[in-house]
């Protein structure tokens, strides 16, 4: 088994050799490490991407907008780095679409890191495959196969607002149950068990 340290270093060096700058190669190394840590086939997809990269004409994106269209597939690394760099200003767009992305799995760790930066979950869907990126702590998906598509015709990224996943009633019921760990205060406990005085006007 390869260690994550070996995975990061080799991915970084391979990315430099594939034509990316050292700084971008560092980002890719971290991202492939993350994918493998989460049990997703990062090395396999990066390898396939670098084999294909020169034959496929890919679109590099500079400024990400709400709807991003191109006749070519977007490069997942360039898109990922741009997304990571611009995520604070992208948040207000709420939902962002891309016409087509090469090796969409490679975009996922960039989104995962972005989720941590802005403190919001990010939802990524393509070809009926969904990923929920949870603050770079974990990744949820409805896709359990190991063969990810080499490209997708459409990709949608949404920022998930920080809100409860449960109803007020669910919360109240649970809170009420938790109250059974509290002690009813008698007069004597009210006077003697708290730290502060009965009047604090001094």
């Amino acid at each position: 088994m390869k260690s994550l340290s070996e995975i990061e270093t080799t991915s970084k060096r391979a990315s430099k050799a594939a034509g990316f700058s050292w700084g971008v190669a560092e980002e890719i190394g971290k991202c492939i490490r993350l994918l493998e840590l989460f049990g997703l086939p990062g090395i396999k997809n990066l390898n396939k991407f670098y084999k294909d990269k020169d034959q496929k004409s890919l679109e590099n994106i500079n400024s990400i907008r709400k709807n991003n269209k191109s006749t070519k597939l977007f490069c997942p690394v360039n898109l990922g780095v741009s997304f990571l760099d611009q995520v604070k200003s992208l948040e207000s767009l709420k939902k962002i679409t891309f016409s087509g992305i090469a090796y969409p799995l490679l975009l996922i760790p960039f989104l995962s890191r972005s989720s941590e930066i802005i403190g919001k979950k990010i939802f990524f869907e393509f070809d009926e495959i969904n990923f929920l990126l949870n603050f770079n702590v974990n990744i949820s998906t409805n896709y359990l196969k190991h063969n990810f598509p080499n490209n997708t015709k459409k990709g949608v990224i949404s920022f998930v607002e920080n809100k409860d996943t449960f109803s007020d009633t669910d919360w109240k019921n649970l809170y009420k149950l938790s109250e059974n760990t509290f002690v009813e205060e008698t007069d004597s406990l009210m006077k003697g068990a708290a730290g502060a005085g009965l009047t604090d006007n001094d």
């Binding site: 700058s21 050292w22 700084g23 980002e27 400024s63 760099d85 611009q86």
Partner: peptide, 17 residues
């Protein structure tokens, strides 16, 4: 902002960091 600078200056990303 730095995100705009990095678009065309990726070669210096490692030292910006």
């Amino acid at each position: 902002t730095i995100d705009k600078f990095l678009i065309e200056n990726s070669d210096l990303r490692h030292v910006v960091r």
